[in-house]
């Protein structure tokens, strides 16, 4: 069976190179000899019910509203999750998975998909810059995650959602010292970069969660070395930048 990596509405929710997350998931399957394909779904087209991982990315206000409307009309995302798919949502994609979010200067409230027990409201200032978070893997292992955040909304978690990672440097949810939220097989987070090329361990975790089995190490020493070099560089930058708001924006 060919595993489907489903990019949901790239034209609406792909503003921060988020399609890169799909490319990373796809190649990391293929390089391990697993048959996989990338499926692009645009508004008006039905979401496949048998996706391995569904991806939502960042977008502007109007795009966010349009995406919720389209996803509710389609219904395929819920079907995919019910069938065991994993949803990984970044930035605006994270916000719209929640119960509600606001857009614009007038703070108009919109209902989200309700897949995560979170609510997003406009924060005191826009969060822009490099981010460092500490993610505790479900198996207890600790991973540092790096990314770049750019969002105006701050997010509060309800009792059904668990925080995803602890913020070391940056803003994240902006309300609780954490970034993102997890609920069942839905994971939301603010940083892009895109996030998976910067954090291949997170990419492999998502794949293993979706497949329900462990994967061996990636048999590409050249690519692994490039990931290591990039991670070392970004960790160094985020830790040594004194005025994050000025110097990393």
């Amino acid at each position: 069976m060919t595993h489907k990596i489903v990019v949901v509405y790239q034209s609406l929710l792909g503003i921060y190179g988020d399609r890169g997350n799909a490319k990373v998931l796809l190649k990391r399957l293929q390089w391990r000899g697993e048959p996989a394909e990338l499926v692009d779904v645009e508004p008006g087209q039905p979401l496949p019910p048998d996706g391995l991982i569904y991806l939502l990315g960042g977008g502007e206000d109007q795009a966010q509203i349009a995406a919720v409307k389209q996803l509710q009309a389609d219904g395929g995302l819920q079907a995919g999750l019910d069938a065991g798919g994993v949803l990984f949502a970044v930035c605006a994609g994270y916000q719209l998975c929640g119960r509600s979010f606001t857009v614009g200067e007038n703070d108009e409230v919109f209902a989200g998909l309700g897949l995560l027990d979170v609510e997003t409201r406009r924060g005191p200032q826009r969060a822009v810059g490099e981010v460092l978070t500490r993610w505790t893997r479900p198996d207890g292992g600790l991973e540092l995650l790096t990314g770049f955040e750019n969002h105006g909304g701050f997010t509060s978690l309800g009792s059904d959602a668990k925080p995803f990672a602890k913020v070391e440097i940056g803003v994240g949810n902006g309300t609780d010292g954490y970034d993102g939220a997890v609920q069942g097989r839905v994971i939301g987070t603010y940083p892009h970069g895109p996030i998976l090329p910067r954090n291949p361990a997170l990419a492999d975790y998502l794949l293993e969660l979706a497949l329900g089995r462990t994967l061996g190490p990636l048999p590409r020493p050249d690519v692994n070395a490039e990931h290591d070099r990039l991670r070392a560089q970004r960790l160094e930058v985020v830790r040594t930048t004194k005025n994050r708001a000025e110097q990393t924006r």
Partner: peptide, 8 residues
């Protein structure tokens, strides 16, 4: 400062 566009 955000190079995520490389993936576009």
């Amino acid at each position: 400062t955000d190079v995520s566009w490389l993936w576009d």
